[in-house]
Structure formats: C-alpha cells, structure tokens
Amino acid sequence: MTTGAAVVELQGARKRYGEVEALRGVDLAIGPCEVVAMLGPNGAGKTTSIALMLGLRRPTAGHARLFGLDPQDRRARSRVGVMLQESGVPGVLTVRELVDLFRAYYPRPLPAERVIAVAGLDDKSRARVNTLSGGQRQRLYFALAVCGDPEVLFLDEPTVGMDVEARQAFLTSIRELARAERTIVLTTHYLEEADALARRIVVIDHGVVIADAAPEALKARMPSKRVRFRTTAALDAAVLDGLPVTSLERVGDRVRLLSAEPERVLRELFRRGVDVADLEVAGADLEEAFLALTTRRPERA
C-alpha cells in the first residue's frame, strides 16, 4: 500500500510510559474503506495504537498521520468518529441532548433521530445517560461516534458490556457502515468478532505487530484447540515428542497442549498406547492462541 493512499498511518511508532514500552515500533497503513481488526491480549498495545492514531497521545518516536495530517488537526478529527474504552459523558444530559451536542462538533452531522435509531436507543432518547445500562451506554457511545457521519471509525473494544442480542445488532450496524464504504479500525479480544467483521486482522502482542493478514490466513496459523488429559505420572516424556502441537506442558500426571489438529494428536497418542483419562478438547481462548503465536515468532504476512 502506498503512503499517499493511507487514511490512517503509524510509522515506526513507539510509545513509552515511564519504564514500560507499550509500543515497540509499529508500522501500519490503513487504506480507505478497509475494515481492520486489531487483535491482542490485554496490555498488548491496542489501545495505545488507537490513542496514537487519534492524536490522544503522542508517539515517543515515529509518526502518526490521519488523512495525511497531524491527528490533532481539526480537519482530520472532523472526519473521524471514535468509541473509546472507559471514557465518560455527562450523566445528567439525556441521550438526545448528548447526541445533539456531539453533532454540533461536526460539519455534516447526520439527523439525530437517525443516529439514535441506528444505535437502537429510540425508546431511551429522553432518558438521562446515567440511567442507562452498560450495554445501552455502549450503544450511546456508538451513536456519538457515528453522529458526525465519519469517514473513519475507531472502535476500541466496542462490544464490551453488550449482551448477545445487542452484540448481534451492533455487528450488523458495523457491517452496514463497512458497506457504506467507511474505514473501520476496531480492537477486540475476540477472534470470532474480528473474523466476522474484518477483512484484515492485525495481531499485536507486547507492543509489536506479530501478524497482519486476512482472517483465513491467520486462522490457519492459529492453534484452534486446547487438549487436556491425565495420564500415568510415570509416563516417559519422550512418548509425547513429535506431536503436531504448538505448545505442550506437563505437570505431574496432567498434560495440556494446543494444536490446530487435535484429531491427529489424539490418533497419535492412542497409537503410541498412552493412557488417556479425563480427556477434554475445547476451543483455545485467544490468550493461549497468542501465546503460541508469539512463542513461534511467525514471519510477518
């Protein structure tokens, strides 16, 4: 991707908070109409990346650009909508009042009724913000993010606190925005969410991008299942060698492993005559999958 076409850009971005280096050189260029999910465990640097892209924080080294401008430039900010984690709004204002206030910040705002309807808050329009539930509040933040009809939408952990129904409705609105040719950058913990929305997934861990690829390509590299079982404590360690796993740990008689091909692992274990009790095969959670990705240090896509 060429630099000139990028809507959002980080170049060699580093960010240090005191002793902690939250970002250790991130290069990322996001073009118009891309839908990008930034995926990573807590503390990986996702929120810091978003903060740099938005100019909420300044990089210790490197550059951040929005529409080729300084991210703090009002001309750039007028084309951007944001949903941040843990940000607040005045609780004594009503939903409608707050949406109208935010609409005044943008040159071409959408009609308030439409924004409130899209966020599914029609029946809460006259309710004060501090009476909203966690999920409703999250939808209000979404309404505030889209009210300026932004070209780029930044969503930091947007579905936190939403119930299943709200999450589905939310994902639908995001897809509609994507169809309407908006650029969307979202962070998430959930692989399914990233997979469902994004056509590009950027995996961040310990402040570096460890993968940047289409969901299909990424999933193929991720160990998807966790296998746990008990065996005899006296089992010879060599028996467990050479299995198609990305990680394996053994504590006493307990064995725990991650693999993209659990069926092959089990077939091999049975073939080798390993005693298997209390067998459990489950979907690996993302933290585990990341761990495997980081320890393997894969090449960048």
Binding site: L54, L56, R74, R77, S78, V80, V82, L84, E86, S87, G88, V89, P90, G91, F102, Y105, Y106, Y141, L144, G148, F154
Partner: peptide, 17 residues
C-alpha cells in the same frame, strides 16, 4: 468531576477545540 468520570477523554478525540 469531569476528570474523575473521564469526560475529558472522549471530548479530546472530537473536533471540539
């Protein structure tokens, strides 16, 4: 109060000078 409720955080990301 606004600092405590992190109202400043979201405001800072808008074009409001």
């Amino acid at each position: 109060m606004e600092r405590g409720q992190k109202i400043d955080l979201l405001m800072r990301a808008t074009p409001l000078p």
